[in-house]
Amino acid sequence: MSIQHFRVALIPFFAAFCLPVFAHPETLVKVKDAEDQLGARVGYIELDLNSGKILESFRPEERFPMMSTFKVLLCGAVLSRVDAGQEQLGRRIHYSQNDLVKYSPVTEKHLTDGMTVRELCSAAITMSDNTAANLLLTTIGGPKELTAFLHNMGDHVTRLDRWEPELNEAIPNDERDTTMPAAMATTLRKLLTGELLTLASRQQLIDWMEADKVAGPLLRSALPAGWFIADKSGASERGSRGIIAALGPDGKPSRIVVIYTTGSQATMDERNRQIAEIGASLIKHW
């Protein structure tokens, strides 16, 4: 058993032996400061991975655009179909130039040979490839079927209504393609630790998130040596930015963190910096 498999397999085991986890309101002070700095709403939640207890939250039940963070949920739905014998990670999917949409750094290189379902999930999560996400959405029946999958998990909040890139429109008060921090954190925890997916599929999902290559300026920039993080970021119109993550010290995840912001006029660099500073406060007061 690899170190990674050891880590995921023991998450339920550690729940019975973990020390009490204490919240630190200092992080919420930073979240509120980020709102002031960005001139935008910020949603935040910090969840204990083992118990599911909410440690801190700010606007946990307000809607925010999901942006590309939905791609983790999408690959969770794909893995659920794999577990049920309805899909194979090794199945190759062929597509054409007409299928390519904006920001497809991986799929645009494989027009001649296509990509496997496994490769598409990797591209969608680690590189946020939009065509990969659309191709995967097609395999499960489209955005409405992803919403149905989430409903069956008990998440009646999170919804996907459109495809890439239209889902990134982020119109104020538009509930399409949105979630709430509390709903996203709970759903992510179920995917990573619950019985919905097999152990192998849970491991695969967290491996893809751990290999994320496009979230460096966010929480990863504040991470001390030896800490673990598996994450997925997102960005969209109207100053929207977000990240969902499982992270913790000693090389294993122990908390879920979800951060969303929307409605800012700030630059992408400034949005990144504010999220990184929230992460730094979280780690300092861990």
Score class of each variant (00 low, 15 high):
185 A>T: 02
268 M>N: 06
57 S>V: 06
226 G>Y: 03
38 L>E: 05
148 A>R: 15
240 S>A: 15
174 D>Q: 05
14 F>G: 07
240 S>P: 03
77 A>V: 10
11 I>H: 04
269 D>R: 09
264 S>T: 15
118 R>K: 07
252 K>Y: 11
177 D>L: 01
195 E>G: 12
163 W>C: 09
220 R>P: 01
226 G>D: 08
12 P>N: 10
168 N>E: 05
61 E>V: 12
109 K>E: 13
223 L>H: 01
286 W>L: 12
268 M>H: 07
94 H>N: 13
179 T>S: 06
150 L>C: 09
221 S>Q: 12
186 T>D: 13
78 V>Y: 12
175 E>N: 11
63 R>Y: 04
268 M>Q: 08
140 I>S: 02
183 A>Y: 07
159 R>V: 14
211 A>R: 11
240 S>D: 14
183 A>T: 09
119 E>Q: 13
99 D>E: 15
168 N>T: 07
271 R>L: 15
83 D>H: 01
56 E>Q: 07
66 M>V: 11
173 N>I: 08
276 A>V: 08
82 V>T: 07
64 F>L: 00
238 R>P: 12
220 R>K: 02
96 S>I: 09
165 P>H: 03
240 S>Y: 07
97 Q>E: 14
177 D>F: 01
94 H>W: 15
136 L>R: 00
226 G>R: 06
70 F>I: 04
89 L>F: 07
215 A>H: 03
21 V>G: 10
78 V>I: 13
3 I>T: 13
268 M>R: 05
37 Q>R: 15
3 I>H: 15
172 P>I: 09
243 I>F: 04
227 W>G: 00
198 T>A: 10
21 V>A: 14
223 L>Q: 02
249 P>Q: 05
160 L>R: 01
249 P>A: 04
81 R>V: 04
44 Y>L: 08
149 F>I: 07
63 R>A: 04
224 P>D: 02
254 S>E: 15
11 I>V: 14
212 D>G: 05
212 D>S: 05
285 H>R: 06
82 V>S: 07
9 A>D: 06
176 R>N: 06
94 H>S: 10
6 F>Q: 08
65 P>Y: 03
115 M>L: 11
6 F>A: 09
89 L>V: 04
103 Y>V: 07
241 R>E: 02
61 E>A: 14
87 E>G: 02
98 N>D: 09
80 S>W: 15
252 K>A: 12
138 T>Y: 11
215 A>K: 03
154 G>D: 08
85 G>D: 10
221 S>V: 09
200 A>V: 11
251 G>H: 11
5 H>C: 13
276 A>L: 07
176 R>S: 08
252 K>R: 10
170 A>R: 08
222 A>D: 06
11 I>G: 09
211 A>M: 11
223 L>C: 09
147 T>R: 07
168 N>H: 04
7 R>V: 10
88 Q>S: 15
180 M>A: 14
90 G>V: 10
144 K>T: 13
10 L>M: 12
66 M>C: 04
283 I>S: 02
241 R>H: 05
144 K>G: 14
36 D>V: 15
92 R>H: 08
246 A>I: 12
277 E>G: 08
140 I>T: 04
95 Y>L: 06
159 R>L: 03
283 I>L: 06
22 F>S: 15
138 T>E: 15
15 A>L: 15
279 G>A: 12
255 R>G: 02
22 F>I: 08
180 M>R: 10
60 P>I: 08
38 L>R: 03
22 F>Y: 13
211 A>V: 05
220 R>C: 01
122 S>W: 13
36 D>N: 14
188 L>R: 00
214 V>C: 09
91 R>C: 02
251 G>P: 04
247 L>A: 01
168 N>D: 07
44 Y>Q: 00
253 P>S: 05
166 E>F: 12
282 L>F: 03
181 P>H: 00
91 R>F: 03
79 L>A: 01
92 R>L: 12
134 N>D: 02
63 R>L: 07
19 L>A: 15
162 R>L: 04
99 D>R: 08
219 L>Y: 00
215 A>G: 09
202 R>K: 11
160 L>S: 07
40 A>V: 08
202 R>H: 06
67 M>T: 11
260 Y>C: 01
90 G>N: 14
240 S>M: 04
194 G>V: 06
176 R>P: 04
37 Q>E: 12
249 P>E: 03
269 D>E: 14
220 R>V: 01
92 R>V: 15
50 N>Y: 11
266 A>G: 09
180 M>V: 13
43 G>C: 01
170 A>K: 07
219 L>D: 02
183 A>N: 07
262 T>A: 11
219 L>G: 01
222 A>P: 06
269 D>V: 11
69 T>I: 02
